[in-house]
Write a protein that binds this DNA or RNA. Structure first.
Length: 475
RNA sequence: GGCGGCGUAGCCAAGUGGCCAAGGCGGAGGUCUGCAAAACCUCUAUUCAGCGGUUCAAAUCCGCUCGCCGCCUCCA
């Protein structure tokens, strides 16, 4: 049984899909007017892991993540750069896909763009106007929040409170300051689509309602996004969707916590953004992923380069283990033999992993089970080296560890993805390593150390193990 | 002003009524090794911001105090 925290009820609930065995999930993607930052990465990762886990648990998951490719900021940025908005949006969609791909985030089943779904949006707005819950006004169309009694339920607010605290500049034409735009009349030079209310473009909120319902139906299971979207975005989505269909829109609303920088929210308006591109220049993607998974998705995360570097060191422990396994496997795969309870412990690790992931996707604890198992395997490996335990069992155990890690999208890169080495350099390094091995055979420790020092100068660490000498780039 | 969240070891971070308070990084000692690296073993919070209360039992529930943050406005 999987439990997940539902923002709507403010508690963990058992996940009961609308159709048995099937999960339909929609994630609010990004507005593509700039490069993605670590906050986008965290959000995308959180839901990528949920999706992977649900699939692992046997659900047939239909996963949609949209792009908002028409909006005020895109238009503004495009004007500044003197390019068509569409071109700007396309550029950042490409960048988004590259960055998220680098982080190991899988593409969604469908990645719809708002501009490809204008007819669906217009149709939805028409339904709302026909029902009398939305009203046209000078080429705009607004949703009248008063007509939706449950307005405010998701964010735990009521209309009076919202009005009292409203910092929106009051548009006198609107019936209520909180009424929000479903359709905006276009100004000269802005992207525009024909509509019953004149040329214009969709409001932000209607996009997600129209696209999610188009691909997932009028009621679906999970709708996800950053916690800043709870109000007003998701609140408005519920209002407009349920007002139009008369049916419950979404069963489970899930929201990820923010990435802060030095205890301050990171946002474009504050100008303190850390782009994924920049981060990936300094950190291995997998280390970044492990770092992010170390904090539960709903908690705030104060980003720190030092902590990512720590995660990279922790990752080394897994990689060392996988290398040992590779070396052993290269010698052939022996029968499991005496496993001294190792395989039962691996099975126990899997049970524990599932238990904590079932509980609102607790990746922090899931990662801990991975470390526990890795530790146990290292310990077992020592016995294998001493001939006291079976190499076959060890390899099976390592396989289990890798398989669990992959549920989180870890361990998918080849172990130790060092920079591509130019063959000439590789030849030189190997010559030095061999010369040193030769010196060691002669017990010429001075010569061996001199060669080691030389290798260290070019950034190579040499390791003498029971199965011979290996080298790697110094981390 | 309204709503909500957080405060756990040197650092990061799980845990939300009852096994000795996960795990990572760092640190200390030891084993192995010509040296080194990796790995292994042991240790590293009698205590969970503070103070009261409820309970047989609380980091976990309630109240107050202090500190920090988010949302209420475009925002993952």
């Amino acid at each position: 049984m999987i439990r997940l925290y539902n923002t709507l009820t403010r508690k963990k609930e058992e996940l009961v899909p609308l159709r048995p065995g099937e999960i339909r999930m929609y994630v609010c993607g990004v507005t593509v007017y700039d490069l993605s930052h670590i906050g986008h990465g965290r959000s995308a990762l959180a839901f990528d892991v949920m999706r992977r886990y649900l699939r692992y648990r046997g659900y047939d998951v239909r996963f949609i993540r949209n792009f908002t490719d028409v909006d005020d900021k895109i238009i503004k940025r495009a004007q500044e750069e003197g390019v068509p908005p569409r071109e700007l949006a396309e550029r950042y969609i490409e960048e988004y896909r590259k960055d998220m791909g680098a982080l190991g985030i899988l593409p969604a089943d469908v990645e719809p763009k708002a501009t490809d779904h204008i007819p669906q949006m217009i149709k939805l707005i028409e339904r709302l106007v026909a029902k009398g819950v939305a009203y046209p006004l000078d080429g705009d169309v607004y949703f009248e929040v008063k007509r939706f009694p449950r307005y405010g339920r998701l964010s735990g607010k009521n209309l009076e409170e919202l009005q009292a605290g409203a910092r929106v500049e009051v548009d006198e034409r609107k019936r209520n300051p909180l009424d929000f735009a479903l359709w905006k009349a276009s100004k000269e030079g802005e992207p525009a689509w024909p509509s019953p209310w004149g040329p214009g473009r969709p409001g932000w909120h209607i996009e997600c309602s129209a696209m999610s319902m188009h691909y997932l139906g009028e009621s679906f299971d999970i709708h996800a996004g950053g916690e800043d979207l709870v109000f007003p975005h998701h609140e408005n989505e519920i209002a407009q969707s349920e007002a139009a269909t008369g049916r419950p829109f979404v069963r489970y609303w899930v929201h990820n916590g923010f990435v802060n920088l030095g205890a301050e929210k990171m946002s474009k308006s504050l100008g303190n953004v850390l782009t994924l591109k920049e981060l990936l220049r300094h950190h291995e993607p997998e280390a970044l992923r492990l770092y992010l998974l170390g904090t539960h998705y709903r908690n705030p995360l104060d980003f720190s380069n030092e902590r990512v570097a720590e995660a990279a060191r922790a990752l080394e422990r897994f990689r060392n283990l996988f290398e040992e396994a590779e070396r052993l496997a290269a010698k052939g795969t022996p029968a499991p033999g005496r496993d001294q309870g190792l395989l039962e412990e691996a099975a126990e690790a899997r049970r524990r992993f599932e238990e904590v992931m079932d509980d609102d996707f607790n990746t922090a604890q899931a990662v801990a089970t991975l470390f526990d198992l890795a530790h146990r395997l290292q310990s077992f490996k020592s016995k294998v080296t001493q001939g006291e335990a079976s190499a076959g069992a060890f390899l099976l155990g390592v396989g289990e560890l890798m398989s669990l890690g992959r549920v989180l999208g870890l361990f998918e890169e080849p172990s130790r993805p060092s920079q591509p080495v130019d063959p000439e350099l590789r030849g030189k390094i190997e010559a030095l390593v061999n010369a040193r091995a030769e010196a060691r055979r002669r017990r010429d420790w001075v010569g061996a150390d001199r060669l080691r020092a030389e290798l260290v100068r070019v950034g190579v660490t040499v390791e003498d193990g029971p199965e011979g000498t290996t080298w790697k780039w110094k981390p």
